[in-house]
Design a protein around this nucleic acid. Structure first.
Length: 780
DNA sequence: GTTGATAATCTTTTT
DNA sequence: GATTATCAAC
């Protein structure tokens, strides 16, 4: 079977899609839709060239359990795609008998696109994220569990935290002390542990020293009781309820296990115990379970991912075929050497050594030391320009960072230099206020029990319903045991309210009644109803934060466009008309609305976590510093340091291996936050990269300024001592008679030449001769 | 009682 | 910097 030209695989997507493949053998199943094969995007034969005949057959179209352990850049997603195509075209498997599970929507989309290119269609195939597929299953079956209807709301993390905060207050605890986020994380972990059969295990959160466990448990109990009352599920429940469904209803379980003759799981190293058990159920009939993953890229331990799932696969499925794909088709040897050198320091792993084509040596890594985050951003922009000047496009470049707050400095430097960029899954679209407001109305239309949405919508735009009125409503609703939407239908309840609040509630009640008719409408039409019913002028006016409301209006338009697109997709997909409720459940699970769409020639900005599975010829890794990578908070919370140090190392490894040709690593000596900041030092992981792999054998400096960039210049610090009476260090907070307060970025020279560069609040960065500038040290 | 302005607070990663 | 708590003014 060689439908594909080996050499094409190496040439890039444009070249590949230009070719046409000869016809494959006729599909055997009578149910199989007639599929016109398109060119597979990449040559699966080439990717599995190192395998023997039996392994190759197992990977491409074999039955039974299969484990593919594949390093970064091995083309494993392409192999999985090829497998789907081979199953359909060669084994006569009908598309609707295949279930492919991924972790991110982006991965699912990519897989769908690739399969579409290979088969000409994805009709009938179930390709989606674990959570998306779980929502789909629950939409059909949740009523079997009792207490829920298919109109259930999916609470995202922000909603969950809002609810938890309310519950914490109801129990008369201080939400500042028991932060909803922390409590939520604790509950999440408990749920996950319960699925591992570890109910009795105490989860101790280091932030509180485990002293208030009973408080956590009380909130947890109340929360567990509230969710079904709201007809709502959180992200954990989505999976847990599917598991419960399969556990408690074997007949139903079997119907799914028989329906899917082949189950494929990508990024298996990131599965948690609940997902593990769901997959086991699904594979219980045919045992045709193919998983692929890379233990070295397991970066979701903090969210319950259990690396044992992949490490123990062969014990769980003793007849499993195991295939390793170690050749890397992405990166040059220097990059791979660096990645290998870093990951080698992890103990909890299976040995794996990446290799590339002989002769693909490439160029050395570029390591840049910068003074602060702005200097770092400028250095990265310079590197990008240089790379692009060499003939590459902006879209070939990515800037990766550990935490979202680092995005800002990078963005402003890119903007200043007019470099086009796109933030991938930054501030989530559906988290924006105007979107959440509109979605709250839609949620109420579908699920009147959704009190979280009610609270959000009732006074947006302002209807004169404040905290007191709301508290009264909640009390009445709780007493009657009904949702808030029912409580305001009761005239006796409204009789207690006077004035503006009263008329506001009446107006809201009428609005809800009209909205109730929208629940069976298409998403876009329902959205129009909401937009008609609310006082848009007022609503926009309230959100006007000086910048104008153009962005917000644009976002609303975008939501509407997305709703329309969803409706279109529904119409063209026979079988499951899900309408508005499907739309709402869908968007709760999608973080990046406009995301993914390769929108032109732009540099991509994203977190390291978001970068997994992607590749770019040019990658800049910002903030390779202690406290950031490994992250200080992760270390602080860890019951076991080495677990975190290793997981963060894997994160670094993921970052390194995204790069194809040029890899830039930067770190700053001072990292500013809002208002504050702190001195920073290079990451311990940076020292694990042999210096000879870096250009110039080591460090390059961020600024082209003539000033030397000694770190913590001892002499200069002494010089400063002479002039200020106290020893200064980089990062110190100082006061200047003229410029006010600032922070020391650099100390250079000694004696009368001792100079400091100080970043003043308001006045910017100044170079000062210490002899004259009478700096007063205020502290760090 | 509600609203709008000012002050405090917190910045890990995500389905 | 943006969200959220607090408080004076309607």
């Amino acid at each position: 079977m060689d439908w594909f030209d080996v050499k094409e695989a190496a040439r890039g997507p444009e070249a590949r899609s230009a070719s046409r493949a000869p016809s494959p053998p006729e599909a055997r199943s009578p149910e199989a839709p007639r599929l016109e094969p398109g060119p597979l995007e990449s040559n699966a034969e080439a990717l599995v060239a190192g395998l023997n005949e039996a392994q190759r057959a197992a990977v491409l179209h074999g039955d039974g359990p299969l484990l593919i352990v594949a390093g970064p850049g091995s083309g494993k997603t392409r192999v999985v795609t090829s497998r789907i195509a081979h199953l359909v075209l060669e084994r006569g498997v009908t598309p609707h008998e295949i279930l492919a599970l991924t972790f991110t929507n982006k991965a699912a989309r990519e897989m769908r696109e690739r399969v579409e290119r290979a088969l000409g269609s994805t009709v009938g195939l179930w390709i989606g994220t674990f959570h998306g597929i779980a929502a789909r299953i629950l939409r059909r079956e949740i009523e079997a569990l009792g207490g829920y209807t298919r109109d259930f709301t999916i609470l995202d993390t922000a909603d969950r935290n809002a609810l938890l905060k309310q519950l914490i207050k109801d129990l008369e605890y201080d939400p500042k002390r028991f932060r909803p986020q922390v409590v939520g994380g604790w509950i999440s972990e408990r749920k996950n542990r319960a699925a591992r059969g570890e109910e009795g295990v105490r989860v101790v959160h280091s932030e509180l020293g485990g002293l208030e466990e009973d408080v956590f448990q009380r909130v947890e109990a109340l929360y567990a009781q509230r969710l079904p009352a709201l007809n709502a599920v959180d992200f954990d429940d989505l999976l847990l309820l599917v598991l419960r469904l399969f556990d408690e209803h074997p007949g139903l379980r079997d119907s799914y296990a028989r329906r899917f003759r082949h189950v494929l799981v990508d990024e298996y190293q990131d599965t948690n115990r609940v997902q593990y058990r769901i997959v086991r159920h699904l594979a219980s009939w045919h045992g045709n379970l193919s998983v692929c993953g890379d233990p070295d890229q397991s970066i979701y331990g903090w969210r319950g991912a259990d690396i044992r799932n992949i490490l123990d696969f062969e014990q769980d499925y003793p007849s499993a075929a195991v295939v390793r794909l170690e050749q890397n088709y992405r990166s040059t040897q220097y990059i791979l050497d660096a990645a290998n050198a870093v990951i080698r320091n992890n103990t909890a792993r299976k040995h794996k050594e990446l290799f590339t084509e002989p002769g693909n040596v490439g160029e050395k890594l570029i390591r840049i030391e910068c003074s602060d985050e702005n200097d770092e951003a400028r250095a990265i922009v310079r590197q990008i320009r240089e790379f692009v000047a060499g003939g590459a496009r902006y879209a070939h470049c990515a800037v990766l960072y550990r935490a979202n707050f680092m995005q800002r400095a990078l963005e402003s430097a890119l903007r200043l230099d007019a470099v086009p960029y796109q933030v991938v899954a930054g501030l989530e679209f559906y988290q924006r206020r105007e979107i959440k407001d509109l979605v709250a109305y839609l949620r109420l239309a579908v699920n009147p029990a959704d009190d979280v949405a009610f609270v959000r919508a009732v006074n947006t735009p302002a209807r004169g319903v404040g905290d007191t009125t709301l508290a009264r409503l909640v009390a009445a609703a709780t007493a009657a045991g009904v949702p808030l939407t029912r409580a305001i239908e009761d005239d006796a309840v409204l009789a207690e309210v006077r004035g503006r609040a009263r008329s506001g509630l009446f107006a809201f009640r009428t609005l809800l009644a009209r909205l109730a008719d929208a629940r069976e409408l298409d998403a876009a039409v329902a959205l129009d109803v909401v937009l008609q019913e609310i006082d848009q002028t007022r609503w926009y006016a309230e959100m006007d934060d000086g910048e104008g409301v153009q962005d917000r209006i644009a976002n609303v338009d975008e939501l509407r466009a997305y709703a329309e697109e969803y409706d279109d997709r529904q119409r063209s997909t026979p079988g499951e008309a899900t309408g508005l409720r499907g739309f709402l459940q869908d968007i709760a699970l999608v973080a990046d609305a406009d995301g993914g769409e390769e929108s032109g020639d732009q540099v991509r900005l994203m977190t390291l976590h978001a970068a997994k599975g992607l590749e770019f010829p040019f990658v800049a890794l910002a903030g390779v510093e202690e406290e950031l990578l490994p992250h200080g908070r992760a270390l602080a919370e860890a019951p076991d340091q080495s677990t975190v140090v290793e997981e963060e190392r894997r994160l670094f490894y993921v970052g390194l291996t995204r790069a194809g040709a040029r890899l830039v690593l930067t770190h700053a000596n001072y990292r500013g936050f809002f208002g504050g900041g702190r001195p920073a030092s290079p990451s311990r992981y940076l020292e694990e990269i042999p210096p000879e792999l870096c250009a110039g054998g080591g460090v390059e400096f961020g600024k082209s300024r003539a000033v030397a960039f000694e770190v913590e210049d001892e002499e200069a610090a002494l010089g400063a001592f002479e002039h200020t009476g106290s020893k200064l260090a980089i990062g110190d907070l100082v006061e200047h008679g003229h410029f006010g307060r600032g922070r020391i970025l650099q100390l250079v020279g000694s004696g009368v030449n001792a100079r400091a560069s100080v970043d003043f609040v308001g006045a910017g960065t100044k170079q000062l001769l210490l002899q004259y500038a009478k700096l007063v040290r205020l502290g760090r």
